[in-house]
Every structure is written in C-alpha cells, then in structure tokens.
Write a protein that binds this DNA or RNA. Sequence first.
DNA 1: CCAATAGTGTCTATCAGACATTATAAG
DNA 2: CTTATAATGTCTGATAGACACTATTGG
Lengths: 209, 209
Amino acid sequence: MVSVDVIVLRFDPEARAVLVGVAPRAQEPFAGELALPGVLLGRGERLRDATTRAVTGKLGLTEESVTATGQLATFDEPSRDPRGPTLSIALWATVTRATGDLAVWTRLDAVPPLAFDHDRIVADSRPLLADKLWRDVPFTAGLLGPEFTTAQALDVTESLTGDRPYPANLGRTMDRVPGLGRTSEHAAALPKGGRPPLVWKWSSEVVRA
Amino acid sequence: MVSVDVIVLRFDPEARAVLVGVAPRAQEPFAGELALPGVLLGRGERLRDATTRAVTGKLGLTEESVTATGQLATFDEPSRDPRGPTLSIALWATVTRATGDLAVWTRLDAVPPLAFDHDRIVADSRPLLADKLWRDVPFTAGLLGPEFTTAQALDVTESLTGDRPYPANLGRTMDRVPGLGRTSEHAAALPKGGRPPLVWKWSSEVVRA
DNA sequence: CCAATAGTGTCTATCAGACATTATAAG
DNA sequence: CTTATAATGTCTGATAGACACTATTGG
C-alpha cells in the first residue's frame, strides 16, 4: 500500500504569503479533520499522475491549474495510518487559482494540526521547499507564475525561508537564476501610493505562455 | 509492488577511491547480470530494515558492517521491471569491509552497465551523493569511518565530486564540519616516503567507538 | 642530497549581508 | 510636502579558489 501525499502550494498576492491547500477528510479514519490531499497509488501509475489526481480529486482544482510537481521524501513509519502499515511518498505541487476550488488555504507558516502524520510531513518538508526557491527553476516558476514583481518575490522568500531578504540582495540572487530577467516594465500603481515595483519575467524556454 | 534498491558505498584506502557494491543477479529477469542489491519491501517493513536486508542478503555483508543509511529518490518508470510496474525507492548505505563479502566492487566513477534501470539510478544519484559529503554528517562519518587522514579525505572528495580540492581548502571545509576535529597524531609512514598525513577524528557523539 | 608526499600561509575573486540614499507614487 | 513603497550604490565580512612555500619522511 503506497499513498501519495501532496503539499500543494500557491502564492496569494493579496495575503502576500505562500498558502498550503488542505481539505477535510470525507471518510474514516480522521473523517472531518484537515489533511493533505492524498491518494493511493494505482498499479503502474506515475507519481506525477497520482499527484494531479490528488489535487483535482481532493481539492477540486483543475488539471491545468497544476503548474509543476516534484518529489520530497518518503515516510515509512508503520503506524502512520491506523488502517495498517502504508508507505507515504510526499510530493509538492505548485498551482494557480482555479474555479471549483474546495480547498482550505492556510499560510505555510501557520498550518493547523492535520490528520495522520501530515504535521510531520509538512514540518520535514519545509526546509526542503525553502531550499528549492531560486535554485529549482520549475518550482520557482510554478510558484510565482510567468511574471511577478520584486515585492512578490520578497513575500514568497519570506514565506518559505522565514525571513525577508534585503531587496538589493534578492535582486542579485534573481539575476543569477537561469531564464529569469528584469524587465523595464513597472507594475500597476499601489492602492496606498508608493513607487510601483519592477516586473520580472521568465524566458519562453522556462514557462509556456 | 515496491522495491528498495541500494547504492552501497565503501571507501577503499588501497584503491584510493569510493567503491560501489553490486552483485550478479541470481534469478530472472537479468539473471547473471550485475545489479544494485535490491529487495521487495515487506508489508510494514521499515526502509532502513529493507536496506540492511538487501545489503546482507544480496552482497553477503554482515548487519554490523552497515554504518549508515538514507534516502535518495523514488523511480516510477512503469517499464523499469519487465515483470510489471514496480516502484523503486533508491537508498544509500555506507559499509565497512566484512568477511563473507560476495559483492563485486566497482569504482563509483566507472560503474559497469547494470540490470533494470539501475544505470539511471546510479547516474541520477551521483550528484545527490556528492552533495552529502561534508554536509550530511552520518553519511560522511559512515563512509570515512571513525578516523582517517587528510589524504583519504582528498581521495573520497575526488571520487564523489570528480575533482580534487586543494588540501588547504579541504582542511577549512573539514574544520567547519560539526563533530570533526584535527588531532595531533600522524598516520604511519608511507611505503614510498613522504610526510605522514594528519589524522582526523569524529567526536564521540557522532560515531560509536 | 633528492624524490615523494603532506601541511600551511596568504593573495584574490566572489558572494552574502547590511544599510543609507535616491526614486516614484498617492493624498 | 508628507507618507508609503521600491530600487540602487556601496561598504563589510565570509567563503571559495588558487598557489607558493615549508615540513617530514625514505632512499
């Protein structure tokens, strides 16, 4: 018995934070409690397919809203599922907002208690996710989307690593990310005033338009 | 069906290189061909236990010769096993020389063609292993043993990363590894002359004496 | 002494961290 | 002009890379 449990991440520009998608469980065990979206891996099924199946089935998102996926680690505690010993392969998925969204979105830095050993999965995975930012291009592009502002990049970095870098330093980091470049465009003016932030874009090889 | 395939590593001071333990397969498919030691994961079995089972069963080493283990990645290509779709969880194990050794030891930088998708597992895992050296303490200590010389540290680094660092620079790296320290001891004199190398040791919290 | 090996001091380039200063917007 | 936000120039300290020089052994 192998289950696939997914840490679904989305950047919310309004909340200025990275959110994790969880959902109340429909069945026992832990019925009604919040849990990471997970499915049992089918025979011969690819991990990538099981990941989108979990995201669409348990969170109600569409297949197109999944922008990137990847592996995290495997959890093998035999007592992690009260129904019997199961292996859990933890994966990440980055998604965009979609219609039919049934998920409960919680800030990555304040995930509520979850069913099974999902608290542990989230806790163990956080440093792995923080490490991917600006290093793993599909992850970073999936999370931030095809274009974004410096201010949003700061928010995402703060959500994942726990502290906010200086803008000048983050700019240097981003200049070294392959496929990412500054544009001369400025984003729309802010509601409360202030200088409009610069827009960054991925080259066409990295993200499909 | 979940199989556990292990990259078994041992440092050979005579060969001055890191070696990988493989063994000819006893059964079809791929009978007679070299392969990584692997076993099917039992129901409720821990990955760590399956790893030692593979190392002792397929390579003939003893349980005590396994000094450390850990995860690498999961391979899910459905056609990787001609008997049908299986998942392979790749793990690493560091071992010491043991009596009853049935393994074929090949240099990590010259692994011969292997059965299944094991060539791919080795290729994909190499950068992961190189990354662990001097960063993952159990891995490094398991590979080098409780004490070792600067010259051996250079050999291991060259085997894993592909190039040989300058001794002064590697010394600085090692000074920053928690639990590792220089001693004032010198190793035995070398056969061909030359200054005897310094000995490094792990503190007692890191390795059991 | 010479050949072989190892250890150490130090110069340089690069990078991460930190701020002060300047720029652009709304009210 | 004030408040709010963003961008940039630049100083400092840490680290990685490179290499010359010194040290210790066997023959």
